[in-house]
Design a protein around this nucleic acid. Structure first.
Lengths: 209, 209
DNA sequence: TAGATTGTTAATCGATTAACAATC
DNA sequence: TAGATTGTTAATCGATTAACAATC
């Protein structure tokens, strides 16, 4: 059950592979690393090395069994990612995450949303609770990961509240450096890098507006 | 005016440095790389090398002038990132991005939001338009970057629409591999990696729920 | 057999860290 | 002077790519 440790870069590619393989027509039984690489704009050796880490490999001249590969990738992601994850923040910021269709690809399910504003359920598969019930929920469910998506003003308070409730790791979508004790893991989601690197690439092409 | 090319990793750190420096009390005139590194959990040599790339350096024994450093970083980001950026999608997915307080740190301003649903302005500083006016807007403004935040179903259509309007680069928040011609830059924002690496880190610590 | 493929080993490349020199 | 600092050069590390061997 111990998922093997793989690199962060590969971790970003696994859901991409999985997605791509699932998008192929059902008739596609075998698929080669070369084809996958070409479709996704990666090197073929890279794809082969990646797949070697989570599957039992393919067959020479034939490639990999598509369904097996999907299973291997999803298995890895599921066994790695089966954690109790909650989301905390205000609906204004959090609704995109509640609706995000990418987490399930990675075997992640958000269990509950704790809202700073009184609201109904925003999506039907994730219950919304008032922030006040965070403590009782966590003590009952042993939640280990909290996603934080709020205004800058609220962020540090919400962060403190999560830590007080025993949360071990925080995925922070607020563009602010959170103050946390050493034993708390924090991962800061940075939505600007992607844009900035596009800007950089356009500059190189001579596009200046 | 040609911003120097720096690595993607540094690009993620620049807004972090800028944020941190701005968060210090006004009385702080000088700040050393060692202190910055300690506060942000980075190596001091790394910070020094980073700063060397965008500033004229500090003074031995004293460090850097805080305000000068902020200016240098923000200057770099502004000159690199002064592009016409629009957001396209449905409010459900896009509202978090419209409200995101991190883009301005990087010198990026979203100029307009093109909504698939008829809605009023969501935030007061970004006008909301119906998707139908995308074409006329783009031909008037020479927009080069589009942020895509919609359901999976809508994504490819919206992507095609943007390309038809002359957009050169797409920042894609939809967990789906977009089909695009070779000359279009695509950057896929991946919100799951952060969560997945937290899961991995917790696994290593023996936390299994 | 020839060609398409996987898989392995070595080379390259870029980012980070270590060691240390310079200096105020 | 001694200590805190910047800055530079070399070493390390990890990820990717190149070259090629194996094989169906």
């Amino acid at each position: 059950m111990e998922p093997k440790k793989i690199s962060g870069k590969l971790l970003t590619r696994l859901p991409i592979y999985s997605n791509y393989l699932k998008s192929l027509p059902k008739e596609t039984v075998n698929i080669s690393a070369t084809k996958i690489a070409a479709a996704l704009g990666l090197g073929d050796v890279l794809v082969r090395k990646d797949l070697a880490q989570i599957s039992n490999g393919g067959r020479r001249k034939i490639g990999y069994v598509r369904t097996q590969l999907i299973e291997d990738i999803d298995n890895y992601l599921n066994s790695n990612n089966s954690k109790n994850v909650i989301l905390i923040g205000s609906p204004l910021y959090a609704s995109a995450l509640l609706n995000y269709e990418g987490f399930s690809n990675a075997g992640i399910k958000i269990k509950a949303f704790f809202s700073t504003d009184a609201v109904e359920n925003i999506v039907d598969h994730i219950p919304t609770y008032p922030i006040e019930s965070l403590e009782s929920y966590c003590s009952n469910h042993g939640t280990s990961i909290g996603i934080l998506s709020s205004s800058k003003n609220q962020a540090q308070n919400l962060c403190d509240a999560m830590i007080a409730c025993g949360i071990r790791a925080i995925y922070n979508f607020v563009p602010l450096h959170l103050q946390t004790p050493d034993n708390i893991l924090v991962n800061n989601a940075d939505l600007t890098v992607g844009l900035t690197s596009l800007c950089m690439a356009l500059n190189e092409k001579g596009v200046n507006h």
